[in-house]
Design a binder for these strands. Structure first.
Lengths: 71, 71
DNA sequence: CGTGTAAGGAATTCTGACACG
DNA sequence: CGTGTAAGGAATTCTGACACG
């Protein structure tokens, strides 16, 4: 059961559109932060990025910290 | 923490391609079982289906039962 | 540096239908 | 009944580049 719990959180299964909707970030931002080695999506065989819920939380944390540093 | 655990499992965030890869089912099968009221994905504003990990487990359970009944 | 955007192509998704059995 | 498939269109995703500041 615990094992499954973790797999839900870390399983890379979510595509870009859903990520931008859940985080409020733009595609550009999400890809840029990947370029900066802040997030590491997997890729499907055709090159589509797939993120985990954990990745999404990470992105939201980064965004929040950035907001705080700007104010 | 527990609340988050459940949200990972039930959050509708996964699109068709990933579902077919995780379940081994065809798109046709997944859509047909929806037609039969066995699974209930959400839809994005543009009409794209989104499934949860729970949905995927359900689909795998259905597939497994079907396999057993055929043997 | 961090992000928006237009460009062009490729992969994904959708529906309704026909086929087979 | 349950599933495959071809059709056509729409939405998504990708990369590399230019722009701005």
């Amino acid at each position: 059961m615990l094992k499954n719990t973790f797999s839900y959180r870390y399983k890379k299964a979510i595509t870009m559109k859903t990520v931008t909707e859940m985080t409020g970030l733009s595609e550009r931002q999400v890809r840029y932060w990947e370029e900066k080695k802040l997030v590491f999506p997997e890729r499907t065989s055709s090159g589509i990025r797939r993120y985990s819920f954990s990745d999404i939380e990470l992105l939201m944390n980064i965004a929040e910290k950035r907001r705080l540093s700007l104010n």
